[in-house]
């Protein structure tokens, strides 16, 4: 049932121009960076900034907007003998999968042409981009289900983006300034692991040699994120950031009056 429904949601999304635009953007941006910047590290940093900024923003804004625009589609499905969880899952994966495909292909094609696809940095970038897509669409859906007014939920989605992509790091910095006299490595690792965007950034940065610049702190991070515990914590954090919002959204969706 789920896959059958998913098929139609996918077809609807795939014919919309947004996914094509999204794909085109990654294609052009990646190729542009590969063409114009010298050195793998610089290219990866440029790509990383795009992935870390744009994927959450696009997922939050488009995810919220899409659910509001799909109200009629949703009502049509709800009036059929289909479980609400099935509908919600189909809606979520129906949006996530085309965007994942657009991102992965848009990034992988140029990097493959330039022979960089198998570099650990590019692979980690692809992996974290996929994780961020899953996380922020899940969050977007919660916002869209919980806030009925379209403009208000778009506003909320933007605030969430601003908070997690920009302001959160300001907070982390403020904490490191306030508690400068204390050993903060563990605390900063915890703060970073708690924010999917920061976590994605650290995972990508650990794959290129920037960690050497980080001195003692960097060594602590590398030890942590390089070993089984760190990998588990990272995977768990990104996993929870996907599953928990998805679960909250699905529950709210199940109880929602249309």
């Amino acid at each position: 049932m789920m896959t059958r429904l998913l098929g139609f949601v996918l077809r609807d999304i795939a014919r919309g121009r947004w996914v094509i635009l999204y794909f085109g953007f990654f294609l052009v941006a990646t190729e542009g960076l590969l063409y114009f910047t010298a050195g793998e590290a610089k290219t990866v940093v440029g790509l990383m900034n795009i992935v870390l900024m744009l994927i959450p923003l696009a997922a939050l804004m488009f995810g919220t907007l899409h659910l509001h625009h799909s109200r009629d589609f949703i009502e049509l499905m709800l009036s059929q003998p289909v479980k609400r969880f099935t509908i919600y899952s189909a809606l979520y994966f129906g949006v996530v999968l085309p965007f994942l495909g657009a991102f992965v292909l848009g990034t992988a094609i140029p990097t493959a042409i330039h022979g960089m696809l198998t570099s650990p940095s590019v692979l980690s970038l692809l992996a974290t981009g996929v994780a961020l897509t899953l996380v922020f669409f899940a969050i977007a859906f919660v916002v869209a289900v919980k806030i009925n007014d379209k403009a208000a939920s778009m506003g909320m989605a933007f605030i969430i983006w601003l908070a997690s992509a920009v302001l959160y790091d300001g907070l982390v910095l403020a904490v490191t300034v306030w508690y400068a006299d204390y050993p903060l490595e563990t605390a900063t690792i915890a703060m970073v692991a708690a924010n999917p965007i920061d976590l994605a950034r650290i995972i990508v940065m650990l794959t290129f040699d920037y960690v050497a610049l980080m001195g003692y702190t960097g060594a602590v991070f590398q030890n942590f994120f390089g070993e089984a515990l760190g990998i588990t914590v990272s995977a768990l954090s990104l996993g929870l950031w996907t599953v928990i919002p998805f679960w909250i959204g699905a529950r709210a969706f199940a109880k929602k009056d249309w």
Partner: peptide
């Protein structure tokens, strides 16, 4: 809802699907 049919007040549907596909979708469901 297995044997329940519903016509909404304002009929709006997935924009990018054809009428046939919408009908097929409901049939599939």
């Amino acid at each position: 809802r297995e044997r329940m049919g519903y016509m909404a007040q304002i009929a709006r549907y997935p924009e990018n699907l054809t009428a046939q596909e919408v009908i097929d979708m409901v049939k599939g469901l």
